[in-house]
């Protein structure tokens, strides 16, 4: 008994199934090449573009964050450095001030010593000149005494002259011992 392949219920026809299949294969190939593949490629390209943009933006954000952190660190260290420099400058200024004060004190001491020395010198000079004058007066008085008639008058004259001339330097000459 031969089985008739075409005599299938519901009018199923293998030849027509294959024709439908051929039709669909042509459609599949055409749609894949003309529509599906190019549209998908474009969508992937756009996706890659936006992913790249996002990646760049993320990188830029990260770089900005890093720079911000760095600048904040630098700012903090700059404040610290400024504080240190200010302290050092103050210290230096204090040192310099102290140095100037010391120098001024030294100069003042020197000036004072010089003044004292000069005063002593002047005093010695005055005493010497006074002594010379006294000696001169004494000798002139002596001469006058000798020349005057009475010694008493001569002595009174001598005392008057001495009191006039030697009034201001009398106290000093009294404190110091005469260098004879």
């Amino acid at each position: 008994m031969q089985w008739d392949i075409a005599a299938v219920p519901l009018n199923i026809d293998w030849q027509q199934i294959l024709l439908h299949l051929l039709n669909f294969v042509i459609l599949f190939a055409g749609l894949y090449l003309l529509l599906y593949k190019p549209v998908k490629a474009f969508m992937q390209k756009r996706k890659a573009h936006y992913e790249e943009m996002e990646k760049t933006a993320t990188e830029k954000n990260a770089a900005a964050d890093r720079a911000k952190t760095e600048y904040e660190g630098k700012l903090a260290s700059a404040d610290h450095e400024i504080e240190e420099k200010r302290a050092a400058a103050k210290k230096e200024l204090d040192g310099y001030e102290q140095m100037r004060k010391n120098a001024a004190e030294e100069e003042a001491d020197a000036i004072l010593a010089e003044a004292r020395k000069k005063a002593a010198e002047e005093k010695r000079h005055a005493i010497r000149s006074a002594r010379r004058e006294i000696s001169a007066l004494v000798s002139s008085a002596t001469e006058k005494l000798v020349l005057k008639e009475t010694a008493h008058e001569a002595y009174d004259q001598f005392l008057n002259v001495v009191e006039k001339k030697d009034g201001p330097d009398q106290e000093q000459s009294e404190n110091e011992e005469p260098k004879t």
Binding site: N11, D13, Q15, Q16, L19, H20, N23, F24, I26, L27, G30, L31, L34
Partner: peptide, 16 residues
Amino acid sequence: VNPAVISGFVVTGILL
């Protein structure tokens, strides 16, 4: 063939 075969080819043609 059945009319659906022709329909299939016409649809494929339109779509392509």
